[in-house]
Design a binder for these strands. Sequence first.
RNA 1: GCGCCCAUAGCUCAAUUGGAUAGAGCAACGGUCUACGGAACCGUCGGUUGCAGGUUCGAGUCCUGCUGGGCGCGCCA
Length: 566
Amino acid sequence: MDLLFCNPYSSSVGSKGINLPTKSGGSREINLSVDIVPAPEGFGDFATIIPFKLAKILHKPPLLIAEEIKNKIASPYIESVAIAKPGYLNLTLSLQALRELFKELEGKKENLLSWNPRSFSADYFKEPKNGKKVQVEFVSANPTGPIHVGNGRGGIIGDVLSNVLDARGYTVEREYYVNDAGSKMDLFARSIRYYYFRKCGVQDEFPEEGYKGKYIEAIAEKIFDKFQDSLAKLESPDVLAKIMQLGKEMMIENIKHSLEVFGVHFDSFFYESSLYGGSGAINKSIQIFKNSGYTYEAEGALWFRSTAFGDDKDRVLIRSNGEPTYALGDAAYHINKWERGFSKAIDVWGADHFGHVVPMKALTQGAGMPKDFLDVIIYQVVHLYENGNEVMMSKHTGTFVTLDELVQEVGRDAARFFFLGKSADTHLNFDMNLAKSQSMDNPVYYVQYTYARLTNIINEGLLRGIKYTGIDSVDLSLLDKNEEKNILRAILYVNEELDSISKDYSVHMLPFITLELSQKINSFYQKYRVLMADEYTLPRLALVNASLTTLSFLFDLMGIEKIEKM
RNA sequence: GCGCCCAUAGCUCAAUUGGAUAGAGCAACGGUCUACGGAACCGUCGGUUGCAGGUUCGAGUCCUGCUGGGCGCGCCA
């Protein structure tokens, strides 16, 4: 049992099998998660509700179990254990525990010899590579137009989740699936062709449901500038193919640029079109599904029996006209992911793709992948408001706000922080006026300001020639103020939060814990001085370094800029 | 019609997956600087967690039924 608390910092404390005495006198192994949460003010550093969980299994009152556990806890890292009604266990960490925290944050000793105070290492928050390959696929907007704010939300979720998984030891690949095949691309090309032909003086019919945005005209003009009317002379199918190719290239270039400006990076772009033709991926998938026994032919089409996996209807793989469906293409794509050796694929989709989740999960299972191979994060719609009215967004009507426009108006950091701070499954109301106002109320300025303050202490300390030679020579018992302990608790809690994010993908918690840490730092800052050249100087410098390292790490995860002078 | 998501302080959002007195920011009101950055800090005000039942030591969280908003329900992507 004492093993349980032997390293309160290690994320592995999250769940362990433990031996419990039973009424009959024997013992049995029970595996349950040990939730360690920050205790409320005045209840120690951490709390656990494990007595309640055990009470159900052992049929004994929680208070009694808490007592038994308390007597068995013997760890140099635990200063004291208190029991609170009706059965909480409240743990207070020892100075030795704090010392080890600082030691881990200091990292390599030689870093400190030259007294570069920012040599504290964020490695404390990172886990060694666990050998698992995970793929996160996000944005994946059709290259039929610039990406809009909704894509931006998906972008930030995928980007930051990838960062967190990477820090937790996974090998992460960030991928953009380019839907450059199918009827939408055709529609896109015909919309451009209409404007191109018009430039050439050729009468064409605007396609029904075609794309009407100004960017379509702009693409047509660029094509005209480059080729004059030479394309109008080609045979019709060739013209369309050429226009589609040119339009696609321009659009992808545009999208890549927007994402770069937004600070969202990808390791690879996977083209849907590569599944067709030479690669044979489509044919191979058809064979896999046929061999699986989950297909049948009806009404001239090939069907997949997705109802066998909880879908409410079966899905067509090959249309009666012989063309593969989008679902088949996406299935082939996920088979490709599986073959690339990922242990998990995480897809980040907008709510408009919600209907595709169950069929897609069915398809992966039908193709022989484990049920938990694919996780889909659905994020809800982003609504933009300007002057109290909702800004309607539609690629087809061309009335939409692009991500570029938003970033230009409110800044990259603010846009990222705003998108990130709300859980994926609730709607996001984005007030353009508020965001545009560059108001100082914006929480992103608050956390950046906190960061700047801390670096200023370090710099000032350097100017004053204050020497810090490592935690071993520091009396940590002097960090006894509530404000200081609150900071330490917030730092310690980061790892627990990262674990929970890597399990349930709740990236929206990052801005919250960053804000919380910042508030605690500012409370401390306001009340106590660091550079007074007294016995508190070194312990507090250690605390400042630890705080700065933690903030810096969180900023990196969220892709927020670290500013030393604002 | 069916399926899923959402509803929490005046506003924007949390609540560590069933745990302690439901918390932050903004707004409002009142305080705090001879100091390492006042873009700060401290305090006050603010709640029948949409409504009605149920489950248990314990419910914002789970189950049932409502109300309101959103998304989805193609041989579109």
